[in-house]
Design a protein around this nucleic acid. Sequence first.
RNA 1: GCCCGGAUGGCGGAAUUGGUAGACGCAAGGGACUUAAAAUCCCUCGGUCGUGAGGCUGUGCCGGUUCGAUCCCGGCUCCGGGCACCA
Length: 831
Amino acid sequence: MNFRRFFVQEKYIPQSVEEKWQERWEARKSFSVTEDPAKKKYYLLEMFPYPSGKIHMGHVRNYSIGDVMARFKRMRGFNVLHPMGWDAFGMPAENAAIQNNCHPAAWTYENMAYMRGQLKRMGFSYDWDRELATCDVEYYRWEQQIFLRMYEKGLAYKKTSYVNWCPSCETVLANEQVEDGGCWRCDSEVKQKELDQWFFRITAYAEELLECTHRLPGWPERVLTMQRNWIGKSFGCEITFKLEGRDEGIVVFTTRPDTLYGATFMSLAPEHPLAATITTPGQQEAVAAFVEKIAKSDRAGRTADDLEKEGVWTGAFCLNPLTGGRMPVYLANFVLMEYGTGAVMAVPAHDQRDFEFARKYRIPVEVVIQPDGEPLDPATMTVAFTEVGTMVNSERFDGMKSDAAKEAIADHLAAAGIGKKSINFRLRDWGISRQRYWGNPIPIIYCDLCGVVPVPEADLPVTLPTDVLFTGEGGSPLARLDSFTSVPCPVCGRAARRETDTMDTFVQSSWYFLRYCCPDLTTAPLDKARAGYWMSVDQYIGGIEHAVLHLLYARFFTKVLRDLGYVDVDEPFTNLLTQGMVIKDGAKMSKSKGNVVDPNSLIQRYGADTARLFSLFAAPPEKDLDWSDQGVEGSFRFINRVWKLVFEILPFITGATALDREKLTEEGKGLRRIVHKTIRKVTDDIEGRFHFNTAIAAIMEMVNALGAFEPKNDPRNAALLREALTALVTMLAPFVPHAAEELWEGLGNTGSLAECSWPSFDPAAAADEELVVVVQVNGKLRDRITVPVSASEEEIREAALSAERVQSFMDGKSLLKVIVVPGKLVNIVVA
RNA sequence: GCCCGGAUGGCGGAAUUGGUAGACGCAAGGGACUUAAAAUCCCUCGGUCGUGAGGCUGUGCCGGUUCGAUCCCGGCUCCGGGCACCA
């Protein structure tokens, strides 16, 4: 034996061990995969990172969780696809360009190179051959093709709309990207601006997106609930109200047709097209002022809690279709053009907003639903009555329960041609235009003669130009670059100009998981056959903050690609694991809080295995993880303990022959039982519920038992100890792969543990011969008895009743009942 | 306001289907080794009463169901997340 080598092994030096195995894995291409119809595939994916500079603890946690699953599934015989890439377009690159006078591409690619090094240094088992970056023209060119096909189908379209505008980022924000009236990235106050924008028609898929949430049993229920709420399907009725003295009418959507008899006024959104046309000359000035004021206030303000209800009368009236009553038409600040029809029939008695509005502007309140008990009086009401009650003042519907009247009145309106049942969604189309440079150019050309002309597919890609000036002012740099914008019209050949908007980065992350199946394909975005082999993603892992946006867009995009004929997949992610945040000192780790732990310093001090082990051991994945420096220390100590134990036992097992169960000592059988029980528990914890913390705890218990086991040097125990150490090292492989590999080699094995099988447990070896049964008297624990596993219920009952301590508690009392729970406890009820 | 989570020792957490509350780890205290320290190893470790055996008590609070409740039900408090004039 090489003495020097032995010496190195004796002490755990993570850095050298880790680098050694990382090189070997890379040289052996241990984690590269191809489609193999003979093997069961398993597609494991973690949300890819934005290349912001360096990895943070959230990444370490996310990717450690994923790597456990990837390595575990590989050891279980699956053909595991475990790719990694970069969500590489985005504003920080452009901001860095403005601040540091460096090109966004240079900044991004440098960051990617650095972070790739960090991920490799963590020992994550990725198939790096499939690495992709969304800012690479070989990626985004295909997205342009998809855009064009969506445009052909009307799934990508343009419309003028008021949008959330971040003056700092100089870009449009989706409604969901506005947080508390501020930009979700930079926190600047969001303004309203009218722009011509590109949209994806996600609303065309609202029904399917909603329906499929009921067929995703592998998703956390709360994520599905959030998505359902986001889509927001509601059943109701569209009703037309005739305008007095005009031919046109106002169409409203309502979920409460039962309250129609109580509608006493009408509210329109200030942006409603009718607002301008119906306003009477006398009200012109007031209406104009009101509209102006609303346009200035930001959208966030309009949806704020404490917004004072405000409105203005247009001077016009419409008619209640059932009562014929005259209803003044108001514009109201709380009515949104985006939802429903932008018009609300107002029923002050039975809607709180309408009630407050009516009181403020002295509009009559008409009660049409009475609660059980004390009847409502419009003159004295202080809040609206919104529950189910009995219909009144509603002609032929009087006396009905209001929930039944909903249906009845809707039918009546339909029959009379005044209204129809309808379904409304809260979901709005996805605005994808960004007035930014560092994104995927939208492949469209504007010609004065031919109008909007899609770039012919043969002319793709529309490549991002590199000679761009970044000043941070005046919107998109692309728009000022004549060499980019000037282009002949593909139809008529005359001078035309390019679209300068780029696509939202959520577009790239909506299909990257499909591209991983064929990242090298140069003739099309996707290979149906290869995607067919790998998709869907069996396990997707990422932060809960993406519960709605990214995960809904990715589902939508997958369905679109299916309908465009690219793939045969309905849903992208079969199982979803949403991991919690990394917390330190009671707050989310962030630069601004100054509580960031740098993975580099951890690796330097303890090695990647310790960083991985701690992030897995401290909490189950779905919960927030409380960072603790002492906890890291503890994880490091554990690896050292294992290390020392293996090398302590090693000399005694080198000559071990095959294990003979018959020749085991009693102590040996006991240890073997622990080993096989541990294998069972660790397997269940990883596979069934992702509870790596309890799996690791079980391994720790086994290590403690091994350490306490004596005598280690008895030749009769050699085979047993070899089995135990082999199981130990193999089970550690998904958690601390480098140390496990080195110990595996130390045990005399060649090759790589990464290519070995997960241990199976022997039920016979794991089975107990006797067990402890708890004895309670009146539900209180009084004694424990040890009985053979084979003991019958009757035998256990007798043993429990005759136990000495039990007797003393039963003394002088009469026995009422004995409950025997096999294998667990006996409860004796006395009085 | 609505919806969804959560609350267990000094701390992170465990108890998987209503059946032994506190596994495992951290911190703390005591001891061994050491000239000393670090490292390592051993012991103790929810509260309370008791010399001890052991008793009582204890999973945010109040009540209920049950032989038995951290777990189920009703009411409340606090914390976190999501949504919000959604007609």
